[in-house]
């Protein structure tokens, strides 16, 4: 395997909240054009992992390499400049700014006016509703529209890789499907490389090429998305597909995970 197309490579990353170790030595890589998903339950450390990558938190140990350059511990604005953008959990839009202003802030690190205008149109073409609501204060948008705005704003940095944190959070299944449709279109049509963190394993595995399963700050499984989706453990614990009853007509309630 060549290393030329590895956009993001993480080695033995460790991160702490005070004395509590949230990331316990995570290694993973994301290749050009891929959607890589990190699955895991609440508190597994997924969000912390993204925050450590994007520079909002500093790691204690380990390296984060963006296209071969180490970026761990750098200031977030430097990291955005290098082409890594983080679309945070819970949208985090600027509520009192208009939709158009929110989108323009996504391009804060850029100064090429013509290109920016082109990208604004691109964002509006993927999210036509945002164009309709252009002049409206972003805080008045619905949850789904705010998520679209957050993704659109992230695109404006023209990232080499985009980190998406729980884009389905608080959205109806229908809206979730719509958002993921757009995510996968962006990946295919605009060749945006993405690292996607999700609790909703079914939709995440649906769009991803490769997946990691995270538990208690560690990666416990890594495989192609399709292989993961058919693995017994992922089905049982993340997709909610339960095993058939056994011969005696009983279910084993205390299922053991194979990685324990």
């Amino acid at each position: 395997m060549s290393n030329a197309d590895v956009v993001l490579r993480i080695d033995n990353l460790e991160s702490y909240y005070g004395p509590i170790q949230a990331i316990r030595g995570v290694s993973l890589e994301v290749r050009q054009g891929q959607i890589v998903t990190v699955l895991g339950a609440n508190g597994a450390g997924k969000t912390t992992l993204l925050k450590t990558i994007s520079g909002v938190m500093d790691p204690e140990k380990g390296t984060v390499k963006l296209e071969g350059t180490e970026i761990q511990g750098a200031e977030p604005d430097k990291i955005v400049n290098r082409g890594l953008v983080h679309v945070p959990e819970g949208r985090e839009i600027f509520p009192l700014l208009s939709v158009a202003e929110n989108i323009s802030m996504g391009a804060y690190t850029r100064s090429d006016k013509a290109e920016i205008a082109h990208d604004v149109e691109l964002v509006y073409s993927y999210f036509p509703i945002l164009k309709e609501r252009m002049a409206q204060a972003a805080g008045t948008l619905s949850g789904g529209q705010q998520q679209m705005l957050a993704i659109g704003r992230g695109l404006m940095a023209r990232p080499r890789i985009m980190l998406l944190d729980e884009p389905s959070l608080g959205l109806s299944p229908l809206l979730t499907e719509e958002i993921f449709d757009i995510i996968s279109r962006l990946n295919q049509e605009q060749k945006v490389t993405m690292m996607l963190v999700e609790q909703n394993a079914a939709v995440a595995l649906g769009v991803a090429n490769y997946g990691y399963v995270m538990e208690l700050g560690r990666i416990v499984m890594a495989d192609d998305a399709s292989t993961l989706a058919s693995s017994k453990d992922v089905q049982e614990f993340y997709l909610g597909i339960t095993e058939e009853e056994n011969q005696r007509g009983q279910r084993r309630w205390k299922q053991r995970k194979t990685w324990r």
């Binding site: 994007s54 909002v56 200031e75 977030p76 604005d77 990291i79 955005v80 400049n81 953008v85 983080h86 679309v87 945070p88 985090e92 839009i93 600027f94 509520p95 009192l96 700014l97 202003e101 929110n102 323009s104 802030m105 996504g106 804060y108 690190t109 704003r153 940095a157």
Partner: peptide, 23 residues
């Protein structure tokens, strides 16, 4: 101005401003 809007943005949501690469 870009700087003025960025000032508003940073005051409305500091964390998001960090994510957008606003110093």
């Amino acid at each position: 101005t870009k700087l003025g809007v960025a000032m508003q943005a940073a005051s409305q949501n500091q964390l998001a401003a960090y994510y957008m690469g606003i110093p």
